[in-house]
């Protein structure tokens, strides 16, 4: 039958066409296209894996940073508490010293005051004694100007003596 009898001409031209097509496309189309596609796939894959690595690196860095931050924070806290302690200590020491100094000065002042007081008292006593003597002398002199009064005095004195 005609339909299933291959014609030599068509067989020849098909073979020729297909061979040419295969050669040209194989050399100038399929190879570059497949190479380009493969290259792009590789580059995408490597980009993805690189991104993954970068992500991991980022995570590592972040956690490192966090650790560093935590450490820094802890250090800061330690330094602060240390400083507070030192401050308090210094303050309390200063207070103590001030107290002691104050007490010492007050004591000294008191001693001085006492000394001065004692000196002043002694002075006052001496003057009071001198004055009393003077007054007594003057009184006595006045009393003894009049003999009657002398007698009266003696009598009084004697009376006192008798009584006691």
């Amino acid at each position: 039958m005609d339909l299933v009898t291959p014609q030599i001409g068509l067989v020849f031209w098909t073979t020729l066409c297909f061979a040419i097509l295969l050669f040209i496309l194989g050399k100038y189309a399929w190879k570059p296209i497949l190479a380009a596609v493969a290259e792009r796939e590789n580059s995408i894959e490597s980009a993805l894996s690189k991104a993954e690595a970068v992500k991991e690196e980022m995570a590592r860095l972040t956690s490192e940073n966090e650790a560093l931050l935590k450490q820094a924070r802890a250090e800061r806290d330690a330094i602060l508490s240390e400083a507070t302690k030192v401050k308090n200590q210094i303050i309390s020491e200063a207070k103590d010293a001030a107290h002691k100094e104050g007490a010492r000065q007050i004591e000294q002042a008191r001693l001085e005051i006492n000394n001065q007081k004692a000196i002043a008292m002694a002075d006052v006593k001496n003057q009071v004694a001198a004055l009393s003597l003077e007054i007594a002398e003057k009184v006595l002199r006045k009393q003894f100007e009049d003999s009657k009064k002398q007698d009266e005095l003696v009598r009084d004195l004697l009376k006192d003596v008798k009584l006691s």
């Binding site: 097509l21 040209i24 496309l25 100038y28 189309a29 399929w30 296209i33 380009a36 596609v37």
Partner: peptide, 12 residues
């Protein structure tokens, strides 16, 4: 086919 795929190849 030649025109199309050579152009596509050039595009790549």
């Amino acid at each position: 086919l030649l025109i199309v795929f050579l152009r596509v190849s050039a595009a790549y």
